[in-house]
Each structure stands twice: as C-alpha cells, then as structure tokens.
Amino acid sequence: YDRKMLVDMMPGAVIGIGLGWLTAALVTEEMVRLIVGAVALVFVLRWLYLQFRHGADHAAEPNRIAAAFWGTVAGFTSFVAHVGGPPFQVYALPIRLDPKVLSGTAAIFFATTNALKLIPYFALGQFDTANLTASAVLMPLAPLSTIAGAWLVRRMRPEIFYPFTYATVAVVAVKLLWDGIAGLM
C-alpha cells in the first residue's frame, strides 16, 4: 500500500463522511449517482483523449490538495450513495502505482472509510433488519471475491491493469448515470 496516499486522502474522507452525515436528508442517492457518473465518464474520456493524443500513460505526481479534495468527494459519495470508488480512482489512477500497491491502498482506504461510516449510519437508524439480512447473505462472498481479486491483480501487468481499470470505471459511470437519471424521473 501507499502510506502517503492514505495519509493525504483519509482526512478528506473523514470530512466527506461528516458532510454526508450532515446533508443526508437533503441529498438523494440519485443526485449523487448522476454527479459521480458524470465525473467518472469525463475522467475516462479525458484519459482516452490523452491516450490517442500522446500515446503512453505518464504518471501524475502526488498532490496533497488534490488528494484531500478527492478524498473528501470519495468519503461523501461513499456515505450518501456507496459510490466512493470513482472519486478515489480519479485521484489514484493517474499516479500509476504498481497495481498491487494501488489495490492494497484502495482496500485500506475503503475498509477504513466503511468502518468510520458505521457511527453516523447507526445514528441515522440505517441498521434495520433488511440491511443486516442483506449483509449476512452477502458476507460469504466477501472473502471469495477478495481472494479472486488478489489472484487477478498479482498476475496482471500494468499495461493490462490500467486500461482494464479505466474500462471498468467507464462501465460504472454509465451504470451510475443510468440509475441517477432513472431515479430522478
């Protein structure tokens, strides 16, 4: 994992979770999905443009201010609509860490973010029987998915990993846009 990235992004994530808690009654999941989907799609389109214009990827330099901003957005969107991945990736992917390091950093970032969300979720009464039942049903898939993901990342070269990851961000962006638009209609 990349300790510096976590140190730079986590304070923002805490602020984002707090903002999500404070605005939970004002912001709908659909609005957040639509916004995150649009940002993620623009992010991928920008990457595609740079690929065709300049060819190979060039790693971006880490930036504390950008890390804090995107950490805040990831914390907020993770709290409000469980879609913190795209904002995290907007900051992290251009830095082009080794795929194993990026995956480990993301796992720690979201494990910590999800643990921190428990307190405000509890305060908002989000732990009802339906949520806890869904969690219990899906729990056996968590270790299997983690093992499969770790196996895949260990075997994937960066030249494959990064285009694949951008493609998955594009798919998630389209799905978020679809869900956001459908929910607002």
Rank of each mutant, 00 (worst) to 15 (best):
L48R: 15
L116K: 00
I65T: 05
H58A: 12
Q89L: 07
H54F: 10
S78Y: 09
Y91N: 00
F161W: 15
A74Y: 03
H82N: 08
V14C: 01
A136E: 10
L22P: 12
L141C: 02
P87L: 02
T146I: 00
N114M: 01
G55Y: 05
Y1L: 00
A173E: 11
R46V: 06
K175E: 11
L141I: 01
V137K: 08
T133R: 09
D57W: 09
W47Y: 14
I119T: 02
L19P: 07
T77P: 08
L152I: 05
G180D: 05
L116E: 05
G71D: 00
I17T: 02
G104K: 09
G183Q: 10
G85L: 15
V44D: 09
I15P: 01
T133C: 07
A148E: 09
V32R: 13
V137C: 10
A68V: 00
A148Y: 02
I95D: 03
A81W: 10
Y162R: 10
I17Y: 08
Q51G: 14
A67T: 01
V14A: 08
V153R: 11
D2V: 03
M31P: 12
E159V: 14
F52D: 11
T113D: 00
R64Y: 04
P99G: 06
H82S: 08
T146K: 08
V7C: 03
D2P: 03
K117V: 02
A40L: 09
F43S: 07
L144R: 13
R33S: 15
